[in-house]
Structures are given as structure tokens and as C-alpha cells.
Amino acid sequence: MESRRDVFQAIADPTRRQIIEMLAKKSLNLNEIADNFDVTRQAVSLHVKILTECGLVIIKKQGRERYCEAKLDQLGEVMDWAAECRKFWAEKFSSLDKYLTKVQAAKKPKK
């Protein structure tokens, strides 16, 4: 059974994030993707393979060409994680704000 890569692993690389952005706009073949980068076609192919293994890209055959398409529903996992982090830090900053307000009020001279 093929092991599935983690979506976080896929988006950790800036080149893969750029590929996802490109494919979110339109389907492209490997050569069209590679033309946008200063790396070898083999390197781009490996990036696409990783994106495919984690479910962010699907490859569809059209005639002799193979086109890569973004399948972004897998990013829901990242969005859920980011939302939890945002909630956690919002609570921490709110607590810090309350504490600092309390400390400042205690330092003000009473009239």
C-alpha cells in the first residue's frame, strides 16, 4: 500500500506552494509548470509527485499530454490547524492585554 504524504510536508516547500498557486488558476502540463522555475524538469516532477501523493494535485491525461490540476480540499486540514492556532494565540494575547491593563491601572497615582 502506498504511503500518503502529509499535506503539511507538501506546503512546507516554497516551490510546491508556488506550484499549487499556479494550478489553482488553471491546469498545466509538467513543461508549463517547469517553465516557471529555475530548476530542472526532474526537480519539478518530484515536487508534483509529492503534491500528488498528498492529494493536492491530480493528473489527468488529455490525448498524449498529462495535465496537473489542483485539488485544494486537502488544504482544509491546514486551515483547521491554523484556525486552532489563531484561537489559541488570540486567547493568550487577550489575557496578556487584560493583565497589562491591570498592571498599568495599578501603577497610576491615585488622585
Results as ranks from 00 to 15, higher is better:
residue 62 Q to K: 14
residue 59 I to A: 13
residue 6 D to E: 12
residue 75 L to I: 11
residue 68 C to K: 03
residue 48 V to D: 06
residue 57 V to F: 02
residue 91 E to F: 00
residue 93 F to R: 01
residue 77 E to S: 06
residue 29 N to W: 05
residue 76 G to D: 12
residue 111 K to E: 13
residue 37 F to W: 04
residue 63 G to I: 07
residue 95 S to G: 13
residue 19 I to Q: 03
residue 102 K to H: 15
residue 61 K to G: 00
residue 90 A to G: 04
residue 15 T to W: 11
residue 43 A to M: 01
residue 51 L to I: 02
residue 37 F to H: 06
residue 58 I to F: 04
residue 83 A to C: 12
residue 36 N to E: 11
residue 26 K to L: 02
residue 106 A to T: 04
residue 42 Q to Y: 10
residue 97 D to A: 08
residue 88 F to W: 06
residue 55 G to Q: 06
residue 105 A to N: 15
residue 66 R to L: 07
residue 68 C to N: 05
residue 4 R to Y: 00
residue 23 L to S: 09
residue 101 T to D: 04
residue 16 R to F: 07
residue 77 E to W: 01
residue 95 S to M: 12
residue 32 E to N: 12
residue 48 V to L: 12
residue 67 Y to K: 15
residue 67 Y to G: 05
residue 44 V to I: 15
residue 107 K to V: 03
residue 78 V to F: 11
residue 94 S to L: 11
residue 37 F to E: 03
residue 89 W to Q: 03
residue 3 S to G: 07
residue 40 T to L: 04
residue 65 E to P: 03
residue 13 D to T: 10
residue 6 D to V: 08
residue 82 A to Q: 13
residue 6 D to G: 09
residue 56 L to D: 04
residue 81 W to H: 15
residue 55 G to R: 06
residue 13 D to I: 08
residue 100 L to T: 13
residue 45 S to C: 07
residue 90 A to Y: 03
residue 81 W to A: 15
residue 68 C to D: 02
residue 42 Q to N: 09
residue 55 G to F: 03
residue 72 L to D: 02
residue 77 E to L: 04
residue 55 G to T: 04
residue 9 Q to Y: 11
residue 74 Q to V: 00
residue 107 K to I: 05
residue 95 S to P: 03
residue 46 L to T: 09
residue 103 V to T: 05
residue 49 K to Y: 01
residue 97 D to C: 03
residue 15 T to N: 12
residue 8 F to V: 02
residue 62 Q to S: 14
residue 51 L to A: 02
residue 70 A to H: 08
residue 5 R to M: 15
residue 85 C to S: 12
residue 13 D to F: 05
residue 9 Q to W: 02
residue 66 R to C: 03
residue 67 Y to I: 12
residue 46 L to G: 07
residue 44 V to G: 09
residue 38 D to W: 03
residue 82 A to H: 09
residue 83 A to Q: 14
residue 4 R to F: 01
residue 44 V to H: 06
residue 54 C to G: 02
residue 2 E to C: 03
residue 67 Y to N: 15
residue 58 I to G: 07
residue 32 E to R: 10
residue 25 K to C: 07
residue 13 D to G: 08
residue 80 D to F: 00
residue 27 S to I: 00
residue 55 G to M: 02
residue 109 P to N: 07
residue 23 L to H: 08
residue 25 K to T: 13
residue 2 E to I: 08
residue 81 W to L: 10
residue 48 V to H: 06
residue 53 E to L: 04
residue 22 M to W: 00
residue 75 L to F: 14
residue 48 V to T: 08
residue 34 A to P: 10
residue 102 K to R: 15
residue 63 G to Y: 04
residue 55 G to L: 05
residue 98 K to Q: 11
residue 80 D to T: 04
